[in-house]
Structures are given as C-alpha cells and as structure tokens.
Amino acid sequence: MIPSQIYVIAGAGLVSVGVFAWVVRRHLVRRMMGVNILSTGVFMMLIGGARRVEGGPDGVPQAMVLTGIVVAVSATALGLALIQRIYDQRGERSVEERGPM
C-alpha cells in the first residue's frame, strides 16, 4: 500500500464520519463540525488520489485544497455566526440536540 492510498482511504473514512454527523446529529455545532470533517476528508482524497505526475507533487490539487480550506473556514465562520444569532434570539433549546430543527 503506497502512502497516497492511505490518504485516500482515510479521507473516505472522514467523509463518512462527516456525513454521519451531519445526518444523525441535531446539535447545530456538532453538525457544523460534521460538515468540517466532511470537507477535510474531501481535501485529503484530493491530495492523495490526484498524484499523477511521476517524481514530484502535482501542483494543481495543492492549489485546489488551499482554496478549499479558505472556503471551508469562511463557511464555518458564517455558520458559527448564525448559530450565535439563533442562540441569542431563540434561546438554548433551538440549537440543542432536541431543538426544533
């Protein structure tokens, strides 16, 4: 097993963990984390699976992952801000596991 395959398999694992958290969990922060794990998994697969150039890393996936991380960070920031607003306006119950979502 070459190292890049480990990345792919681990990435796929992270994707499934993220999807699981997103679908099953109800707490908003947990779901947000789930989406984050999902994106990390996708990025790892991207780095691991896209190595085609012999003798040296392929620049394109690296650039893509960098951009992707930036997107994921800003999305997380937006999500956390939203959760904060919901908490402020509607109280604890609305962000909890048994919330109305």
């Binding site: 908003l28 994106s39 999500g79 959760i83 306006q89």
Partner: peptide, 14 residues
C-alpha cells in the same frame, strides 16, 4: 428565517 438559513447553510455546504 434564522433556522431556515442554518438548514440552508448545511445543505449548500454539503
């Protein structure tokens, strides 16, 4: 609209 937006965020991200 806030919970709706939250749900929309999860959908659009995934």
């Amino acid at each position: 609209a806030l919970p709706a937006a939250m749900r929309y965020l999860f959908v659009t991200l995934s």
